[in-house]
Design a protein around this nucleic acid. Structure first.
Lengths: 279, 279
DNA sequence: AGGTGGCTTTCAATGGTTGGAATAGTATTG
DNA sequence: CAATACTATTCCAACCATTGAAAGCCACCT
């Protein structure tokens, strides 16, 4: 610190080898280890973890050992590591994760029972939607997303609902960015997007038609908390051409409202009328 | 370390005040912060977290900030902290958490649909069972446990199944300990417990009658993975006196077997016959 | 106004953390 | 079967992130 590195006058690289990159907070490193796990990487060896998290093996081992001791990770018989039940347990206390899910599940099931199509529940995390729950019969249409996975905001029905419910500032930030191309979904120019979001807010319904994994139509509706903010989105995904969307919409809206009510939201008679009505 | 504390000849306490208790790995501290969250404590203030995790506020703040930056925790508008979606997302990759659940859910739903009673799915973590999933209609009997919660091994149906499926060494260790008293469940002396576990292994069914939150009967059955080890337990909980247990047992066993098959388990014709039958 | 309690920032001392090197173990190859 | 390549683990001295008392804020209560 105080000493100036006056002694270094090597040819070019200060590669005296010493400590290449030291100085990242321990926690960040530990978390970056957790972040290595993904849908495709559910069981990893020490060296894989070390490589992907970009840290020397001994360091990774030390951190991982702690995580294992606590139960955040578990070690399989073959020496590989997987995410542990203990972590899952704590995560199940996440209000926006299992919290909403727990309250919504019975209603999702009702909707699923009646329609026998995919029913999805998602929340927003930063600039993406995270799938919290998905109900599917064993013989339903192919669907793109899995529970715990992420979906874009601009090109999915739940995404549009969540985006429409976000604060103005955030919406502008999203629209400022160029939309990344999503396979099988029609591009939407900014003007149309703005109109769509406004419609979603007014009607409480978002609709998207996609052709990629298969021809499907998604109909989504917002879920509100006691403060009236959009905390989640519920949607149904049906094969294009089966049940007409305008038939699905009421069912989806009704279900979403039922969940909202259970979250303490004082529903107004119409979505449009939202002035000073106090329960 | 190397230097002997020769200089200390104070009156009594070396309480020169300096660093009271410093020297716990950072990760452990961070994890102990996560561990503070529980069913009853889902949203906590900084000072609450610091108090329960037993560390000074500034330290807690520093650690928490990192966790928030990553998404393991989230901060509410009122300043309190809750478990974040990002953590939930990673945790959803837990093979024994969401993994089994994802595969089992459709089957659990079938069973639930037919019986309209509580359906539970649990795995073992150390000396307890952890509830992975619970399906309940809005109008079902009161039940003691919630998803993400823990239940004792010796006095619940799923617990007995998991215990019976654990390795011999572990079972002995459990039985060596005195059984903690569980309200509403009949005590079971060691001899009877041994016999019960043996029965469970033979029949693939465990049964427990409890009187506490309400009069109920639970019937559980093991779920096997491809290697033939018990990875989870499935159970149904019905009000005592409704459907007779011997009627439920086949349904529960059948469902558990269906899940096992999907996990890659090669079911044998009878549970009793398990010699050298391949494919 | 004074007091209380929670939250945040600062900062110098320090001990946990770090990663190269060496060792042991394991799979793959010639 | 030795050689090779890779992974996992242990060691340890240098070092820097970590630590928590102290003090400043802010909000709330009396």
């Amino acid at each position: 610190m105080t000493a100036t590195p006056d002694t270094d006058a090597p040819t070019e690289a200060p590669a005296r080898g010493k400590r290449p990159k030291q100085g990242e907070p321990v926690i960040d490193r530990a978390l970056s280890l957790l972040a290595v796990f993904s849908d495709r990487r559910r069981a990893l060896t020490l060296s894989e973890l070390a490589r992907h998290a970009d840290m020397p093996a001994p360091t990774a081992l030390r951190l991982i050992s702690r995580l294992v001791a606590w139960g955040a990770l578990e070690r399989l018989d073959d020496g590989r590591y997987v995410v542990g039940v203990r972590l899952w347990e704590v995560a199940s206390l996440s209000p926006r994760g299992h919290g909403v899910r727990e309250i919504a599940l019975p209603y999702l099931e009702d909707l699923f029972e009646v329609t026998r199509h995919h029913v999805l529940l998602a929340v927003r995390d930063n600039e993406e939607a995270v799938l919290i729950e998905r109900l599917s019969s064993k013989d339903a249409t192919e669907v793109a997303y899995r529970v715990g996975g992420r979906a874009p905001l601009r090109s999915t029905a739940v995404g549009l609902v969540l985006l429409a419910g976000a604060d103005q500032h955030f919406q502008e930030a999203i629209m400022a960015k160029p939309a990344e191309k999503e396979p099988g979904v029609a591009e939407m120019p900014e003007g149309q997007l703005r109109r769509t979001l406004s419609d979603v807010r007014r009607t409480g319904i978002a609709m998207i038609r996609r052709s990629h994994p298969s021809m499907t139509v998604s109909v989504a509706s917002p879920i509100f908390d006691a403060q009236g903010s959009v905390v989640a989105a519920l949607s149904i995904v049906v094969p294009d051409g089966s049940t007409p969307p305008n038939v699905l919409a009421p069912a989806v809206r009704a279900t979403a409202r039922a969940v909202s009510r259970n979250l303490g939201h004082q529903a107004t008679v119409s979505t449009e009328v939202r002035t000073h009505s106090r329960g």
